[in-house]
């Protein structure tokens, strides 16, 4: 940015406040990120290298034992279950959320849209714990669902304390996020694209798959990622609805920090692995999103 021209003093005068301005604008977010994201992550990483650390201990990085423990079959099984719940929830949210978001964004009367969205987001205002307890009430053997099924002379379902109940609870918790993000994406969809597709001979389903879905792909990816990440961290739903075999990675981490064993090192190692997995997912999204953005 340096100039050799005689006008240099003037340049300095204007460029100095410019970098100062940039610094001032970026500083709050930068400090925030450093304090609340970068430093804690580094601390967790440091802790993850320490075997047998207790609260209050002096930290001495020394090894990868904590990481090796992750490869025990039981721990791998736990991580696998977490991934399964998170992926299953993501797929269910996508399957159920897309039609809803589509309907609200493209088909519902315009003046009702905000109200419909609000209605859909309303459950988010209650405690997630309360929602899980509500599902216990609904799904238990003599609960609301089975009372209804019996009155319709249908066979009852024993869902509570099994994996389907976890998926139901998690999908219910995360569906509003998916719908909101998909709505934002679908709302921006240029309707002339749909007309153009119809004009070129595409039936509504063909137009949906060849235009609507590709056009909203960034939204689909963002919504899926959010649901996946949040689902990966959820332990309330698996815990309350999943029965005896419901240990998830998040719960295992919780146990290491706030449970009886207090193994912060292993908990940190496990956290690092999850952070890495999630970062990888985000990196893929950014890469993918970029490719898509270049065409916009």
């Amino acid at each position: 940015m340096s100039t050799k021209a005689p006008s240099a003093p003037a340049q300095v005068q204007t460029s100095s406040p410019q970098w100062l301005q940039a610094l001032l604008l970026l500083a709050p977010a930068g400090i925030w990120l450093a304090l609340l994201l970068v430093i804690p992550t580094l601390l967790i990483f440091q802790l993850s290298l320490v075997p047998d650390i207790k609260p209050g201990d002096i930290v001495n990085p020394s090894g990868l034992d904590n990481y090796l423990r992750i490869f025990q079959p039981d721990v791998l099984k736990v991580i696998g279950r977490s991934l399964l719940f998170a992926i299953g929830t993501t797929l269910l949210c996508l399957l159920m959320g897309f039609p809803v978001a589509y309907w609200i964004a493209l088909l519902s009367p315009k003046r009702w849209r905000n109200l419909l969205l609000l209605a859909f987001v309303l459950p988010l205002w209650t405690s997630s714990l309360l929602r899980s307890y509500a599902w216990i009430s609904i799904l238990r053997p003599t609960g609301v669902l089975n009372t209804l099924l019996t009155s319709l002379h249908l066979p009852t379902l024993d869902l509570l304390n099994r994996s389907p109940a976890v998926l139901i609870g998690m999908t219910y918790s995360l569906l509003p996020y998916m719908v909101l993000i998909l709505y934002a994406s679908l709302e921006k969809l240029d309707r002339r694209f749909l007309e153009a597709a119809a004009d070129l001979g595409a039936t509504p389903p063909q137009a949906f798959w060849k235009v609507t879905v590709p056009q909203t792909l960034p939204g689909i990816a963002a919504g899926s990622l959010l649901v996946f990440i949040t689902g990966l961290g959820d332990f309330i739903n698996p815990e309350l609805l999943g029965g005896t075999s419901s240990m998830t990675a998040a719960r295992l981490i919780y146990n290491q920090f706030l449970g009886a064993t207090q193994n912060w090192g292993f908990g940190s190692a496990l956290s690092m692995v999850l952070i890495l997995a999630v970062s990888l997912a985000i990196a893929l999204l950014i890469k993918y999103g970029d490719k898509n953005a270049s065409s916009l």
């Binding site: 240029d190 007309e195 153009a196 119809a198 039936t203 065409s295």
Partner: peptide, 20 residues
């Protein structure tokens, strides 16, 4: 329906599919 009509349109502002 439009997708069965033997007519094709050149739209105002073209409406070219941005993802293709």
């Amino acid at each position: 329906p439009p997708y069965r009509r033997p007519a094709n349109t050149v739209f105002q502002n073209y409406a070219l599919f941005s993802h293709l």
